[in-house]
Simulated assay, not measured.
Amino acid sequence: MKNKLNQAYMTDILDLLLRTPSPTGYTHHIMQKVQAEVVKLGYELAFTNKGCGIVTIPGVKSDRVIGISAHVDTLGAMVRSIKENGTLKITSLGGFMMGAIENEYVQIHTRDERIYDGTILTSRPSVHVYEDAREFKRDEANMEVRIDEIVKSKKDVQALGIRVGDYISFDPRVQIKDNGFVKSRHLDDKASVASLFGLLRLLKDVNLKPSYTVKVFFSNYEEVGHGSSFIPDDITEFIAVDMGALGDDLSGSERDVSICAKDSSGPYDYQMTSKMIELAEKLEIGYAVDIFPRYSSDASAALRGGRDIRAALVGPGVHASHSMERTHMDAVSHTAALLAAYVMEPAEA
C-alpha cells in the first residue's frame, strides 16, 4: 500500500495549501479549496457551525468510527492598533517567538477583502539609527508592520480601509526541492493535511474500503486550542495528525512519521499507539516514537472537551516548528501510509 501512494499528488496539494493564507480564524478561503479538492476526488465535505470540514467514508463495518484530524489554520497576527506614524501594532495568533517573524513579509486582509503588503519590523529597525537596535527586546509591544503604501498618519491608513481586527498573514516562502525537502512556514499543519489527501486519493485510486467507517476532520482553530473541541458523536477513536517536533532529546527526523506517546495533555491511548508502532515496523514505514512536553493537539482539544474517545497523535517530522520550518516528502508519505494501514486493519469478528 505504501508504494501505491501518489507522492506527486501530495506534493501538489501541499504547495497549493502552503500558498493559501489561512491564519487561525481566517480559514474560509482555504476551506473552499479543501472542499473543491474533496469533491474532485469523489467525496462530500460537510461543515460544522464553526467551519471545520468532515468527510465520511463508509467502512466494511460501522460499529466503530475512526476520526482522523489535521488542521488548516496557521500562525498569524491581527491588527491591534494603528499608530500615529502610519504603522500597525500587532497581536499574535498562535504561539511563536517574535524573533521568528522579524523582517517577514506579510499581507494585511481587510474585512472588505482588500489586501495590502507589508513587513514586520521592530520599532527600532536600523543599527545605523538606533544605538540599542541589536539589544532591543523582541516582543509584541516593540513590533510593527510597515505598510507598502504611501501612509504618514493613522488617517492615511484608515483611508485604505485597514481597521483594528484585520488579519495579517505571513509570507510562507515556499520552496519544494527536487530532493524531496520542503521549506516553508506553516508546514504545521499543512504537511499533515497533504497526508490526509494522500490517504483519500489512495482509497479512490485502489478502490479500497476501510475496515470501519472513517471520518476525516479538517480542523480550523487548532492553533488557539479548540479546533476539534467538537467532533461527531459517533467517533470512538480519534487520530490527530500534526507535525512531529524535532530537536534535542527527540528521536524523530524530517523523513519519519512521528508517533507521539505523550504531550503536555498527558499520554495517548496505549493500544492505539502500540498498534501504530506495530504497523510501522511490520510495513517498514520510517517512524520514531517521541514525547512532546510543550505541545498539544486536536486530540487534546477533543479530550478536554469531554469526548469519550481513545486518541493517538502521529504526523510528519518538521524541523524548526513555528519558525522557518522544513520537512521531507518522505515524512508526508510515511504518515499517509501509516494512516492507510491503520484504517485497513481487518475488522474484528
Rank of each mutant, 00 (worst) to 15 (best):
P232W: 10
C260W: 00
F47W: 05
D178F: 05
K61F: 06
E222D: 11
V343S: 12
S321R: 02
G51T: 00
R201P: 00
L200E: 03
I231K: 07
A288K: 10
I68F: 04
F136S: 10
R134W: 01
E104M: 13
H28F: 07
V343K: 12
V332R: 07
I285L: 09
H186Y: 07
I54H: 04
D248P: 14
Y116S: 02
D12C: 05
M31T: 02
G42C: 09
R138M: 14
S333V: 15
F181G: 05
G51Q: 00
L203G: 06
I108E: 04
D112M: 06
N103C: 12
V216C: 01
E345I: 14
G317S: 06
S265A: 15
Y130E: 11
M78V: 14
G165H: 13
T119C: 14
S333F: 06
A302N: 07
L199Y: 04
K262I: 09
K275D: 13
I115N: 12
Y287N: 05
K262G: 03
V65W: 02
R124M: 13
T327F: 13
D263N: 01
K83R: 15
F230R: 08
K262C: 05
C260I: 14
S333E: 14
V289G: 00
Y130W: 15
E144T: 08
I57V: 10
D132G: 09
D330Y: 11
F238D: 08
I231W: 01
I277E: 09
N85K: 14
K4E: 12
D112S: 09
R310D: 11
H128L: 13
R304L: 14
S69F: 01
E102Q: 14
G118S: 08
I82Q: 07
P210K: 13
G244D: 05
M272F: 08
V224H: 08
D189C: 00
S153A: 08
L338K: 10
E281A: 11
I115F: 11
M344T: 15
